Amino acid sequence: MDSIIAALVSFLLIDPLKAETADKLAAARAPQTVVAEMSACTRSAALRIVERASTDPWWAVSNSVHVWVGTKAPKTLLVEVQPSCAGAVAAARPILTQRAA
């Protein structure tokens, strides 16, 4: 049962978080330090997301819906789950929010 929950959480919360951060930063050719910081934060947050989801399924369902319908940005979830990542998110925000030219 735990592996099923972990797989769902990964698909619904962690994968969108990774897509929003590391993939977009790499595509934008962001400085390597920003990419490394965001990757480390995403990895540490992923563990906390799975732990939180296993103890509070309603939180997981609620946040999954918010992320999937676009009412909550994955980077917002990252900072909520891992507050120490606020600096890395702030450094990456200009890159993540710029539009493709």
Results as ranks from 00 to 15, higher is better:
54 S>P: 00
92 A>V: 00
48 R>W: 09
84 S>G: 08
49 I>N: 03
100 A>E: 01
52 R>D: 00
6 A>I: 05
50 V>I: 13
6 A>G: 09
79 V>I: 10
69 V>Q: 14
2 D>L: 13
98 Q>M: 05
72 K>W: 14
15 D>C: 01
96 L>N: 00
89 V>L: 00
85 C>F: 08
77 L>P: 02
34 V>C: 07
31 P>D: 03
12 L>S: 10
41 C>N: 08
23 D>W: 09
30 A>F: 07
42 T>P: 02
2 D>I: 08
64 S>G: 15
22 A>E: 07
33 T>W: 07
96 L>C: 01
62 S>M: 07
10 S>R: 15
53 A>C: 04
95 I>N: 03
11 F>I: 02
75 K>V: 07
77 L>R: 12
20 E>I: 01
96 L>Y: 05
84 S>M: 06
25 L>P: 02
96 L>W: 04
27 A>S: 14
34 V>L: 08
90 A>S: 08
51 E>R: 12
84 S>E: 06
40 A>K: 07
43 R>F: 12
54 S>D: 00
12 L>C: 05
23 D>P: 05
51 E>M: 05
87 G>R: 10
80 E>Q: 14
43 R>V: 11
46 A>I: 11
13 L>F: 11
58 W>V: 14
17 L>N: 06
40 A>T: 05
50 V>P: 01
65 V>L: 14
80 E>W: 09
48 R>P: 03
40 A>N: 04
73 A>W: 08
72 K>N: 02
75 K>M: 13
34 V>W: 10
1 M>K: 15
50 V>D: 05
30 A>D: 04
41 C>V: 02
92 A>I: 01
12 L>F: 10
7 A>L: 12
27 A>Y: 14
62 S>D: 11
97 T>W: 12
82 Q>M: 07
91 A>C: 06
55 T>K: 10
61 V>P: 03
44 S>Q: 12
63 N>A: 04
